[in-house]
Design a protein around this nucleic acid. Structure first.
Length: 365
DNA sequence: GTGGCAGCTCGTACCACAAATGGAG
DNA sequence: TTCTCCATTTGTGGTACGAGCTGCC
């Protein structure tokens, strides 16, 4: 793909960006401002359009995801892609199947797409290209969450493809539960440190959390995709229903849910039922109070919490009892199922026990 | 465009038994 | 109140199997 040389600074040399930011020339553009007739990156978009009230009203659209060099005009629901008129015509005239893709026009979005943090605004020109690309993706994802809120309290100026209030309330739900969950997690960790051991000592089992350093990217990606599907699924409903999305989320996330040691639950003096990680316990606990107004600082904090939680998600299975795991691994199996131990194996065990303890089994008759 | 088939992926039930749990005495 | 006994429940991993999806004819 030919890269347009717009900036004279040469900041785009050596990258694969189709079009670089007209302002900083050091990052790929993500939005097109119609008022300024300029292609801007996330950081510059935030900085320029947050400068004053007039600038904040500039209408802008995302850049075409195909050519990345023209403003997107249509959103293909089948491909979930924003396309410019040229790419839309090319792609959707290729075959009959593509022609059936449902596309909706993308209206311009007033206001700033991004809410940069202080660190981002200060260090936005110092990150490497790769880091910036990754950060860009996270920015867009986080911004996609942020974009959805205004429609809840004011006139919904979003595309209508996503009903912002619903999704943002979902985010609020997630964050509410995550905060409660984190509170429980912290409490649990403190108790672990307090007791000095993760499990009440019976001389047998001990809790052994599996610390797999390998991040299961495909699982995360899969879950993330399913998560996004949940949102779209909900947004397609005319009537808002928590049950729909929540049941989906549970079915996805509870599979690899982290299990809390039983002893911990019984040992904690303040009783609570810790839900599976990622689940939403709507049917117990105090009613959730939805904030009606969110300041930019609040929203930024929520996005940061969302990112942090996204980074620290765990998908690996947690072993609660190491002895049971060790025993299960050594047990005889038939087609994967546990099988009864033969008499010979039982005798071997008894012999080994006699050697260890020095005592035999006395016949009862 | 529709139906049938093969191949693939994914989730889950199944098994035995030691350990954990909780009630009764 | 504390301890012991005993019945019940829980948790553990590898494999088979069914459901669902995709691609091809």
């Amino acid at each position: 793909m030919m890269k347009e040389e717009i900036c004279d600074a040469g900041g785009d040399v050596g990258n694969n960006w189709a079009r670089v930011c007209d302002t900083c020339c050091s990052a790929p553009c993500t939005v097109y401002c119609r008022a300024d007739s300029a292609y801007l990156c996330a950081g510059c978009d935030a900085r320029v359009h947050a400068a004053n009230r007039v600038a904040s009203r500039h209408e802008h659209v995302r850049v075409c995801e195909a050519c990345e060099s023209a403003p997107a005009a249509f959103l293909c629901k089948a491909d979930a892609a924003s396309l410019c008129t040229a790419c839309d015509a090319d792609i959707h005239s290729a075959n009959s199947l593509a022609r059936r893709h449902q596309r909706v026009p993308i209206p311009p979005i007033p206001g700033c797409l991004y809410v940069p943090s202080a660190a981002e605004t200060e260090d936005s020109f110092m990150v490497t290209e790769i880091d910036e690309t990754i950060a860009e993706e996270e920015e867009e994802e986080a911004a996609s969450w942020l974009l959805l809120n205004p429609g809840k309290n004011s006139t919904n100026q979003n595309t209508g493809f996503l009903f912002g209030g619903e999704v943002d309330e979902y985010l609020d739900l997630l964050e509410y539960n995550s905060s409660v969950e984190n509170q429980f997690t912290d409490q649990y960790n403190q108790l672990q440190q307090h007791y000095g051991a993760p499990h009440k000592s019976y001389g047998g089992d001990s809790v052994v959390p599996i610390q797999s350093t390998d991040a299961k990217d495909h699982l995360q990606q899969k879950q993330h995709q399913s998560f996004q599907f949940d949102l779209d699924y909900d947004s397609s409903k005319t009537a808002y229903s928590y049950n729909g999305s929540i049941s989906h989320s549970i079915s996805v996330s509870s599979v690899d849910g982290e299990v809390v040691p039983e002893s911990t639950m019984s040992d904690i003096p303040t009783p609570h039922t810790r839900p599976f990680k990622g689940t939403i316990d709507l049917f117990s606990g105090p009613p959730i109070q939805m904030p009606s107004q969110l300041t930019p600082m609040d929203r930024e904090a929520r996005v940061l919490r969302y990112r942090e939680k996204k980074k620290t998600r765990k998908f690996e299975k947690t072993i609660r009892y190491a002895s049971r795991k060790a025993y299960a691994e050594t047990r005889p199996r038939i087609k994967g199922r546990f099988a009864k131990r033969s008499d010979a194996e039982v005798e071997v065990d008894q012999m080994s026990l006699m050697r260890e303890t020095g005592y035999g089994i006395v016949p009862s008759f």
